[in-house]
């Protein structure tokens, strides 16, 4: 019973945020920022703890599994373009994934971030399940990494259009790759606004970034961490 109430409440507030964002596309109205804020307000009013909410909302989180599987569909539909641009995908994502790890690392070292945060922030650029795996591998705190992954998605979804316009990126290939590399599923969701081709490349970026980050997590990051002592 509680599950139905919580799931319906979440869907309703998400729908409101989505409509609001369509009418007035301000960063603060981004559905992944506005709907959690509305939900937090509601659960505070009704004296529900965040943990109780999370347990009841489990069916929604579960849907991330089949949604990840469904990413096979755009790839299958656009296989010809994928084959044509495989070189661009491999080059830009290999570099992008390294930039993700090293930029977080350098920034974290610059501000003397504590060790748990530093290690947990490194795999934040990829989709949640993979980021958690990598975090576990390199001695981070997987739950903390999940928080960083979500924050990355929210920030990426918000700044995405400005970065793309600011750099006057024209090709849907580059738009998609940049969004999928920097902001995983949330970026891919944003890429849909630039058309199906951008969405496909974003999906590919996300998958390839996840795979190669797993490799970095096994061979590169442990080496860096040992070196840093």
């Amino acid at each position: 019973m509680m599950i139905i109430v919580v799931v319906c409440m979440t869907i309703a507030l998400y729908a409101i945020a989505k409509i609001g964002y369509k009418k007035l596309p301000l960063p603060i109205f981004h559905p992944l920022l506005l709907s959690p804020i509305l939900i937090i307000a509601v659960i505070i009013i009704f004296h529900v703890s965040a943990n109780q909410y999370l347990i009841q909302a489990q069916p929604l989180t579960h849907m991330l599994g089949p949604a990840t599987v469904a990413f096979a569909i755009p790839i299958y539909k656009h296989l010809a373009v994928v084959k044509k641009y495989i070189g661009i995908i491999v080059t830009s994502i290999t570099i992008g994934s390294l930039v993700a790890i090293f930029s977080s690392l350098l920034l974290a070292l610059m501000v003397h971030l504590n060790n748990n945060f530093l290690v947990s922030v490194l795999p934040r650029s990829v989709t949640t399940p993979i980021a958690m795996e990598v975090s576990k591998d390199i001695g981070g705190i997987p739950t903390l990494t999940t928080v960083f992954v979500i924050l990355t998605g929210i920030i990426g979804g918000i700044i995405g259009p400005s970065v793309i316009n600011g750099l006057s990126i024209k090709s849907p290939v580059a738009k998609g790759l940049a969004l999928g590399m920097s902001a995983h599923g949330v970026g891919t969701n944003k890429a849909m606004e630039y058309g199906e081709q951008a969405a496909t490349f974003s999906t590919l970026a996300m998958i390839f970034a996840a795979s190669i980050t797993m490799v970095w997590g096994k061979v590169l990051i442990p080496f860096i961490i040992t070196y840093l002592g």
Partner: peptide, 30 residues
């Protein structure tokens, strides 16, 4: 403060990753 700093790091790093990837992919594409 630690949390706030991390949010800023994530923001800056996400921006750098997005810009670098977009720039490289766009150059190779054209």
């Amino acid at each position: 403060l630690q949390g706030l700093t991390t949010v800023i790091i994530i923001g800056v790093s996400t921006f750098i990753v997005m810009a670098t990837t977009a720039f490289i992919a766009d150059r190779i594409y054209f």
